[in-house]
Design a protein around this nucleic acid. Structure first.
Lengths: 199, 199, 199, 199
DNA sequence: AATGAATGAGCCTTCATTCAT
DNA sequence: TATGAATGAAGGCTCATTCAT
């Protein structure tokens, strides 16, 4: 492993350790000392890779977001908007299942430390909402969906997904992403009212 | 104003100041000094009313929750479960609108400071979910709703409501609680699928 | 001793401790911990009286300058400019003898820590020079002195005095202020050239 | 350029960079990192040439002193003590004009960092004083000067020169070394008193 | 010899908490 | 009960120095 690789490795270890600890104890309660200890690195080394603690946080957010986005890349190639949303939901739930620390971070970060953090967070939400919105609009054009206000409907759906994610993170739930996703999309599409339906 | 009242007064001022500052800057960034200054009370006095900073937070959470619950008390007297849910949603949105600091606190508090805080938070969520669940069950029995898994459906709805609350707090939205509530309940009940319905 | 007095006392103790330690080891090598220990005060207490270490330095400089100026106040009431300069010199030497730490501070401070420090220092020098200059001008008008360039002559004399001060501080010299002052003024007035003089 | 030359070159670059930075920001505020960067040398290389930062400072002081002494070497060949002093003064002023960083260093160094530094500094002063003293004694023997206490007179003159140097460094003055030197020597020799003189 | 990544002691500063009045 | 001065533990960050390459 050459020097450049070693450096990359160390930086990743710091990002990982930071993500875990920030998620576990919050930004303030996680100390730089603790982070470096977990990353098996001396305290001073931290500052070779990050200007300060805040920058680590920013980097973690970017780093995790990128991974999150990567996990969603394949979605755009799905033709059918209904199916696309289904996959989106499944992917969301799975990603949170597999990246509990990201989930907690997302939640923890809101409103903390730096005024820019919550903004960053709401931007992510807005991206999700706008992704869903496009799919809904396309679906409406194609005669699959029937919603008048696609924006609000997207917020609505995003909320439902989010809550399932949170429940998953807090271990209040015990089922797989696929089942959850199916449940959500079905309920979203068909509603909860007792009516007779005809195809 | 007798002594007992005066005491209550000071305690409330501290609770209020704490709630505002915690919501604004987060738990760690709001200092005891700042809180007491805003409450027009000497720093030492703080510790006559609260064992420590954490206890203030706990008290604030309880205090705000109580107010939140009070705002929801009338709901139980509503006969029709559909209407009850509608009112619940409207009340939720309105309460967050009117208590933005509570909203932010709720969001901020998650995962912070003390392992007990997120637990407390999820307990609140569970209460909401279980309230919705009961209404759904009742509605199913009465032939108004048709959901197989009332628990998941409740989580679903709670999520949708939550996201609208959050959007409201972050000023990303400009409509009244009533309209939002109507939108949510309609979508929840009728779904988004383009199908013919027969009564 | 009431609270206000106690506070004043503590502040003075910190100023004194700071002056001594800064003089002894320089600004950077003297730690806040050390200063508070010497002032018999807890470390945190320091920050009740001074915003930071730099502010302590600034306060010390002002504090010592004020004392220095006070020691020179009586000078202006001396009629004869020659005598006034004589007294000035004597006072300078004595003040440095008695306030060795001030002397060292003056010397140490130059160019250190903060760009404003050397400016401050040269301003002090300029004040001295301009004091001497006035006396020389007055003396010229009264026919006591004969110097064409009073400004440069003042710089000249100030330098001579300064060097005697420094020698005193560094214990390279063993005579009293009065003798030194007399020597300086005589040499300044009569020069070093071997010539016959007639009254 | 062979290896030995290269080494010398690097060492000189470090000395130069150190001298400039110490003069500019003071000993503590100039970091080894900064010094090596300016000298276009890796950080670790520093320790191949100097045991530690303090040793660099010591070397700089010696290095500059040597240059200072070299600039004064021709003085000893001047027969007439009066002229020798005149040249000495001129050289002093000129050297400081041309080596402002040395001047600042001299001033900054006093009392800083290490107890040995001010000692070193006062030793330089003593050398100057003793140089002047010899010239004065010789002048007295030759009937040019008339001073009883040549030691104190030398301190006196050294101080005057020093202050002109300092004023020059701080840009408070705008004349050439020759003029300043003439002014100083004249005032020193003839004094400031208004008296009739006969040859 | 040269490099620059890595180290960790040490310092300034903050702030929750205590305590004398 | 109320005050606010005093405390000191703890944390972020710097930087001289070491060391593997």
């Amino acid at each position: 492993m050459d020097v450049a690789e070693k450096k990359r490795d160390k930086k990743e270890r710091l990002l990982k350790a930071g993500a875990e600890l920030f998620a576990q104890k919050g930004y303030h309660s996680a100390t730089v000392e603790e982070i470096t200890r977990r990353a098996r690195v001396a305290k001073g080394t931290f500052y070779l890779y990050f200007k300060d603690k805040k920058e680590l946080m920013n980097n973690i957010l970017k780093w995790l977001s990128r991974r999150h986005e990567e996990s969603a890349e394949k979605l755009n190639s799905i033709e059918c908007p209904k199916e696309r949303i289904r996959e989106y939901i499944e992917n969301e739930i799975r990603f949170y299942d597999e990246n509990a620390s990201f989930a907690r971070l997302n939640i923890n970060v809101v409103g903390m430390v730096d005024p820019s953090f919550p903004d960053w967070y709401m931007n992510i939400q807005k991206k999700h909402v706008s992704f869903i919105k496009s799919a809904l609009e396309e679906g409406c054009r194609k005669g699959i969906f029937a919603v008048k206000d696609t924006y609000r409907a997207a917020v609505f759906l995003r909320g439902a997904v989010f809550m399932f994610q949170a429940y998953g993170v807090y271990n209040l739930d015990g089922e797989g992403p696929r089942e959850k996703a199916s449940f959500i999309i079905e309920l979203f599409l068909q509603g909860a009212e007792k009516v007779k339906r005809t195809g």
